[in-house]
């Protein structure tokens, strides 16, 4: 009786997963079929799997450039973001009485700030500086967008590291900053890596900001590139789906590594002073 219930639940779970992930699965499976075959038959599994679409986007499009651009932008933004958020998160954790309230509120405003409001003046500014199609503005905007979440997450990691360690270091003659670098950081490293990957994922997936600033084909990130495919080859479903499938591979790999941390992350915004 009890055993049956378990398997029934598993069965229900798998059905739900299949329904929810159906659109993603279709894209991945259809990417191995030619456009004619996609349009003519509706079988779920490809009958004659082929790599034609992948060969096509490799040879005839800038897909690999998009991927490289995405990696550069996402890496730079998550690196910068994690450095800033580590410093701020440490300050919020250790000196909470002084600054927690006002800074938390500032982060909340950052969290709700409509990006379009930042983009209009920044686009005009960076255009004057001749920096459209340059990664710098995109990296800076991504860094700020991630700050609230990254800072809150890291603060809660630092909170879980006992203050006695800081004090012991101070007695041994360590400045607080040195204590942070040599004692707290190594202990918080798993958390910091997880937050960095979150930031990376966010920047890698983001479309809006990149689409405004990166308009040249050699500068586009993966989402912007796929969107331009959508407009150019609106009828070539095969290539479009191959690009979409390749585009989500990095996301899914990174996601697999940090899914354990997702539970903690999902409630990070809810941690109150």
């Amino acid at each position: 009786m009890k055993v049956n219930r378990k398997w029934l639940l598993l069965f229900c779970g798998l059905i739900i997963v299949l329904i929810v992930d159906f659109p993603i699965l279709t894209v991945a499976l259809n990417s191995f079929r030619t456009t004619e075959s996609i349009l003519s038959s509706h079988s779920f599994l490809p009958t004659e799997p082929t790599l034609t679409n992948y060969v096509y986007i490799s040879a005839r499009t800038h897909f690999w450039t998009f991927l490289l651009n995405s990696m550069i932008v996402a890496f730079a933004a998550s690196f910068l973001g994690i450095v800033l958020a580590t410093l701020a998160g440490f300050a919020l954790s250790r000196y909470r009485a002084l600054i927690l309230g006002p800074y938390n509120q500032a982060l909340l405003v950052v969290q709700m700030f409509p990006l379009i409001l930042a983009i209009i003046p920044l686009f005009i500014l960076f255009r004057r500086l001749n920096m459209v199609n340059n990664f710098v503005p995109v990296i800076l905007v991504y860094t700020v967008t991630q700050l609230p979440f990254a800072t809150w997450m890291l603060r809660s990691y630092f909170d879980s590291i006992p203050r006695e360690l800081d004090e012991a270091a101070r007695i041994d003659g360590c400045t607080p900053l040195r204590g942070l670098v040599q004692i707290i950081l190594p202990l918080a490293l798993p958390g910091i890596v997880a937050v960095a990957i979150f930031s990376f994922l966010f920047s890698y997936n983001e479309f809006f900001i990149s689409s405004v600033f990166l308009r040249d084909e050699n500068r586009m990130t993966v989402p912007v590139g796929i969107q331009s495919f959508m407009q150019q080859y609106s009828t070539d479903w095969g290539s479009l789906m191959a690009a979409a499938t390749l585009g989500m591979v990095p996301t899914l790999i990174l996601f697999f590594f940090i899914q354990k941390y997702m539970m903690a992350g999902a409630t990070a915004g809810a941690v109150k002073g």
Binding site: D21, P23, L201, Y204, I226, M241, A244, M248, L252
Partner: peptide, 13 residues
């Protein structure tokens, strides 16, 4: 998965 994949990919699908 639907939450984590890039918006562009979900819109294509």
């Amino acid at each position: 998965v639907p939450w984590i994949v890039p918006a562009v990919v979900s819109i294509v699908s």
